[in-house]
Write a protein that binds this DNA or RNA. Structure first.
Length: 336
DNA sequence: CCCATTTGACCGCC
DNA sequence: GGCGGTCAAATGGG
C-alpha cells in the first residue's frame, strides 16, 4: 500500500480514536483544556488526511475551521486554525509538467528564518504586486558540502506579521541529516574550515538558538510553501526536518505520555520524514500550536515527564477506547 | 580578517 | 521588454 494511503488511514483512525476520547471527556468533570486538546487533535488528523488527498490530486477544499480554541481568551488559536489553509498550487517542472505546491499559512511572531538550518541570503527582490520584497536564501553549506537547498521568504501583504516561506531543493548537508535525526545541533565543519577555531562554537551557539526558536516559530506558525526542484521522490527528506524532527519528538513525547497505543499511530509522514513528501509538517504545526502550552510546560520542566499528565487529561481513561468496529476505515476499499 | 548581508547588475524565460 | 531569480562587488559587524 502506498504510504500516502497508510497515512490517510492512520489519520482517519486517529481522528476516530481521538473522537472517542473526546466523547469520554464530555462529562462535566473533564476539563475544557482536555477537550480542546482532543478537538485539536481531531482537527489536525482531518487536516492531514485532507492534505494527503490534496497531494494525491484530489480536489479537496480546505477552509478555515472554527474550534473551541476560539473561545479561549488567552491564546489566539483562532488565527492559527484559520490560517491552516493548505493550498495546492501547480508549478511547472523541468520536464514541462506541473507539480503541486502546497501553501500553508500561519503567523510568525518569531524569526521566520529560524527553521533549524543555516541559511545565507544571496538576494532580495521587489516582487510586482507585493508590498514586501522577497528574500532569497541558500544553505550555508552550499559550497562546502554542495547542499542545494534554497528558500524564499516574503512577508505577506495581507498580514505583515505573516511570512510565506517557500523551500526549494533538498538539504544534502550534514546539518540536514543530523539535525533531522537527532538533537545534536551541528556537525564538525568540513576540513576546509578546520583552521577556523571560532567557526564551530559560533555555529553551535547559533544552532542552539535556532533550536530554541523552533517551537515558538511553530507555535505561531508560518506560511510555508514547499517546492522541490527535482523529482518528486526527491522531495526533501530534509526540508522538514529540523523543524519536523522537533515536532516528531514532541509528538512522540506526547504520544508516549498518552499511552502510545492510544494516541500513537503516528503517520509515516511524521515518523519518516525522509520518505515523506515535504508538505505534511505544516499540518503538524497546527498540532504543535495547539499543544503549545502543554508542550512548553512539559519540556521546560523535565520532572513533569514521569508524574504529570498533559494538562489534566485523564490518561487512565484512554486505556479503554471504544469505537465502532463496523466503521470501515480499515478497509482500503473504503477509499477506492 | 573572515563572513554574512546588501544591493545593483546581469541573465534567462515568458 | 518585463519580471523573477542569481551573481558578485561593496559594505559592515564581530
Amino acid at each position: 500500500m502506498d504510504w500516502e494511503l497508510k497515512s490517510l488511514l492512520n489519520e482517519l483512525k486517529e481522528g476516530r480514536e481521538v473522537t472517542n476520547q473526546l466523547m469520554k471527556h464530555l462529562r462535566p468533570s473533564s476539563s475544557h483544556q482536555t477537550r480542546q486538546f482532543l478537538l485539536d487533535k481531531i482537527l489536525c488528523s482531518y487536516e492531514k488526511a485532507l492534505s494527503i488527498l490534496n497531494w494525491n490530486g484530489f480536489v479537496v477544499e480546505t477552509k478555515p475551521s472554527v474550534t473551541a480554541f476560539e473561545s479561549s481568551p488567552s491564546i489566539d488559536h483562532s488565527s492559527e486554525v484559520s490560517d491552516i489553509k493548505d493550498v495546492l498550487k501547480k508549478r511547472k517542472t523541468s520536464s514541462g509538467g506541473t507539480e503541486q505546491v502546497r501553501v500553508c499559512s500561519g503567523k510568525s511572531l518569531d524569526n521566520p528564518l529560524d527553521d533549524g538550518y543555516c541559511w545565507r541570503k544571496y538576494g532580495q527582490k521587489a516582487i510586482l504586486g507585493s508590498n514586501f520584497p522577497r528574500g532569497y536564501y541558500r544553505c550555508t553549506h552550499r559550497h562546502s558540502q554542495g547542499c542545494l537547498a534554497i528558500k524564499q521568504v516574503q512577508r505577506s501583504d495581507n498580514d505583515p506579521s505573516n511570512f510565506e516561506v517557500k523551500y526549494k531543493g533538498r538539504h544534502t548537508c550534514n546539518q540536514a541529516s543530523h539535525s533531522a535525526a537527532t538533537f545534536v545541533p551541528v556537525l564538525p565543519e568540513s576540513k576546509e574550515k578546520g583552521n577556523h577555531s571560532r567557526k564551530r562554537p559560533y555555529q553551535l551557539e547559533k544552532k542552539q538558538e535556532q533550536v530554541r526558536h523552533i517551537f515558538s516559530s511553530f507555535e505561531s506558525g508560518l506560511k510555508v510553501k514547499t517546492e522541490d526542484l527535482d523529482n518528486r521522490e526527491d522531495i526533501f527528506p530534509s526540508f522538514s526536518f529540523p523543524v519536523e524532527s522537533e515536532q516528531v519528538k514532541s509528538c512522540l513525547f506526547v504520544e508516549a505520555l498518552m499511552e502510545n497505543d492510544i494516541m500513537g499511530n503516528l503517520s509515516p509522514a511524521f515518523v519518516s520524514p525522509a520518505t515523506s513528501d515535504s508538505n505534511y509538517f505544516s499540518v503538524s504545526s497546527c498540532h504543535m500550536g495547539s499543544f503549545e502550552s502543554d508542550l512548553t510546560d512539559i519540556i521546560s520542566d523535565p520532572t513533569s515527564v514521569t508524574n504529570s499528565p498533559i494538562g489534566d487529561i485523564d490518561i487512565s481513561s484512554l486505556d479503554n477506547l471504544e469505537f465502532d468496529p463496523s466503521f470501515p476505515f480499515d478497509n482500503p476499499e473504503f477509499f477506492s
